[in-house]
């Protein structure tokens, strides 16, 4: 009635809420799979199991893309949340980039097969864990942004903490790599992988910063 579509307005909201939740879940799950994949790669090399996980990440990336497009279309076509729409879309876009970074890392391991000596395994696992912790904290911040604006700052603070930790571990691991007896080309190759993993935490921190601005804008 009166163009309000009152009945569908609430059901449409519920559907969009579900889609956004699913999108954030996907970001979180992709991170967890990456953690498992790195462990698997270091123990068993680029085998069948690792390739399966890479495929899983790839299909989740496509799923996230599809959800993002659907949410984007719904928000614009029905002029929903006009004041926060552009922020929400930018947020989804940047979260999608995190998935893209993780997917890129998976492909790089699968194609280039870097040879990490055993000495570096624990360091790489620790780095991956802290990087994925930052992405996980970001997912919690994002959920807060949608439902509990007061807690965004607390959760965003954790993202910053893990990003700093990741920077520290990246530097330590790089130092260790360059102190080792590996050849320069090997050192450069491993350093490249360490830096690419660290980029995920950097991206998470950038999004957390943006999120804090969005949450200030969202206050009534």
């Amino acid at each position: 009635m009166f163009g309000l579509k009152s009945k569908s307005l609430f059901s449409q909201s519920k559907e969009l809420e579900r889609q956004i939740d699913e999108f954030v879940n996907t970001v979180s799950e992709v991170g967890l799979i990456f953690k498992k994949a790195i462990r698997d790669y270091l123990s068993n090399g680029s085998g069948n199991n690792f390739d399966k996980m890479v495929e899983q990440v790839s299909s989740m990336e496509s799923k996230a893309d599809k959800i993002k497009k659907e949410v984007e279309t719904a928000l614009y076509e029905d002029t929903l949340i006009p004041d926060a729409r552009s922020d929400v879309l930018r947020l989804l876009e940047h979260l999608d980039e995190i998935i893209g970074l993780i997917q890129g890392n998976c492909y790089r391991f699968s194609i280039q097969k870097p040879a990490f000596p055993k000495d570096f395994h624990n360091d790489l696992i620790n780095l991956t864990d802290v990087v994925i912790d930052s992405a996980e904290s970001l997912c919690i911040s994002v959920r807060s942004f949608f439902r509990d604006i007061k807690t965004v700052r607390d959760n965003a603070h954790k993202v910053t903490f893990y990003e700093k930790e990741s920077d520290k571990q990246t530097s330590d691991l790089q130092r260790k790599i360059f102190k080792s007896d590996l050849t320069l080309d090997q050192k450069m190759h491993l350093r490249y992988f360490v830096e690419k993993i660290d980029q995920i935490a950097d991206q998470a921190e950038d999004i957390a910063d943006e999120l804090q601005i969005y949450s200030i804008k969202r206050s009534i």
Partner: peptide, 18 residues
């Protein structure tokens, strides 16, 4: 009310429109 209700941003939007 909004701070305590923890309603989703989209649900707040729907309620506000109505």
């Amino acid at each position: 009310l909004l701070n305590n209700s923890k309603l989703h941003i989209l649900r707040v939007d729907a309620y506000t429109r109505t």
